[in-house]
Write a protein that binds this DNA or RNA. Structure first.
Lengths: 259, 259
DNA sequence: CCAGTTGTTCACGCATTTCGAACGACATGC
DNA sequence: GCATGTCGTTCGAAATGCGTGAACAACTGG
């Protein structure tokens, strides 16, 4: 719960908090939620019923689940920018070409959202079930390759704004937690045109990312390709190869777009 | 705004109504929303700020858009049932094999939600931008093939419950608007094992659908394949061919699942 | 059969939301 | 360049409407 400018609508916030709790617990009961959020059962009862009525939650016996009503909204957001749809399709070819994991990520409100994700050479359509990178996941900007690639193209001012709001939490021993170090890194990224992530998010996971910019040079999103550290050696020629692949793909995308 | 059993949380409802209005208008300004929902500007102001703070809306200049915060929820719902993920992958093969449009649909709260959609032989990954069948869209059960296929497997009681809640609105001249006619149709569907939709949803669009049932014989969802009427002649051998393809696919899916 | 759950209902009192009017910022008009 | 029209924002005041807790019903398991 961050600071919220004017008068926040507390009621809405608790409703949303409930929805979040239901999601994060993967199905919860009324009393369960009541004492998790420290609310009266009757309060929770009313909120849950409203959310069910609206379709945002589903009741199955006595446990509540996330409803499909979120889908019309998320798909709307996901396709709002026509570039998103185009970019999402490229994720699959990137995954296949490299045989690794690929995703397309977008910045919103200082956080990175995965819009599309695929694994190469594995399951049919590359839909993995339990990957930390599934579509819809949210990351901090400073500890993933795509995030850093995007930060590198934003104004220092905006970067600072983001860091102030979300901080630099560490998820591994390699996460950059120092502002100055991050700015140095961003400089390097700008120079070489792509970003790398060397186990900064997840132990044993490396990735390479590059940002996509729109006709007005504003950053729209970023692609990244990643995999287990033993397969993606940093500073290797293979890294540069993948980076080049990314950059080519992005060039093609960008030149295709400018309507 | 349907009736809501106990005491609805009005505040949450207006917040959600705002989000919906933003989505349906594809970006709206504060005052725009204020007089569309007949609320004071200051009220709208507070709601919008809370929603932005939570990430469910995004502010771009003075217009608000749907935010990506819906994504973590919808993807959660979309993958909750492991069968969903598996089924979604089949949609692509169905689309390619038939060269038509294919989708996988699920019933929730009496409405049909498209979980996955693809077009055969067209664009790379079959992601269409402006189809009425895109993932995340919501239909009534009575005027689409998948919907009818699912209704046919529900108890008469539950069917009536759904009809009571959502009615039988007509979208074309062929839509079934009479309850008795619908029940006759459901009987036919049960007999032949699949459902057809002959321009009942959209003029010039036909489709064939069949339901998927879980280990406990409960209906989980339905596949459908559809296309322009001139290509899919009803009562033709080609219809039965597609229906057979669907049923085979579903058989394979069902036998693969029962863990 | 009683002591645990569970979710549900209800009346009350206070916190919250709602409203409306006034403000500043910006653009467009004459 | 002044006036008028937007736009979003702020604030005080009023009452609506939310939150609470206790009492209820329906089940479950000891």
């Amino acid at each position: 719960m961050t600071d919220d400018g004017p008068r926040p609508v507390k009621t809405t916030k608790t409703s949303l908090a409930l929805a979040r709790a239901v999601r994060d617990s993967g199905g919860a009961t009324l009393s369960d939620l009541a004492d998790r959020l420290d609310l009266a059962k009757s309060t929770v009862h009313n909120h849950l019923h409203t959310l069910v009525d609206e379709g945002f939650l589903v009741r199955d016996g006595d446990t509540y689940h996330v409803g499909l009503q979120f889908l019309p909204f998320s798909e709307h957001a996901r396709n709002r920018n026509p570039l998103y749809s185009t970019a999402r399709q490229r994720v699959y070819s990137l995954a296949e070409e490299t045989g690794n994991e690929a995703d397309f990520i977008v910045e919103e409100n200082g956080r990175a959202y995965t819009l599309e994700y695929a694994i190469g050479e594995s399951t049919a359509r590359g839909l993995s079930e339990s990957s930390p990178f599934r579509a819809g996941n949210r990351f901090h900007m400073h500890n993933c390759a795509s995030g850093k690639a995007m930060l590198a193209l934003l104004s220092d001012e905006r970067v600072r704004e983001i860091l102030d709001r979300w901080g630099l939490p560490a998820t591994t021993a390699h996460t950059i937690t120092d502002e100055a170090t991050l700015f140095d890194e961003l400089e390097t990224i700008r120079r070489q045109g792509y970003a790398t992530n060397d186990e900064e998010l997840i132990d044993g996971y490396r990735s390479i990312g590059a940002a996509v910019t729109g006709p007005d040079d504003a950053v729209v999103g970023a692609f990244s390709v990643g995999g287990p550290a033993y397969r993606l050696a940093i500073d290797d020629s293979s890294t540069r190869e993948i980076a080049q692949l990314l950059l080519d793909e992005i060039d093609a995308l960008e030149s295709e777009l400018p309507v």
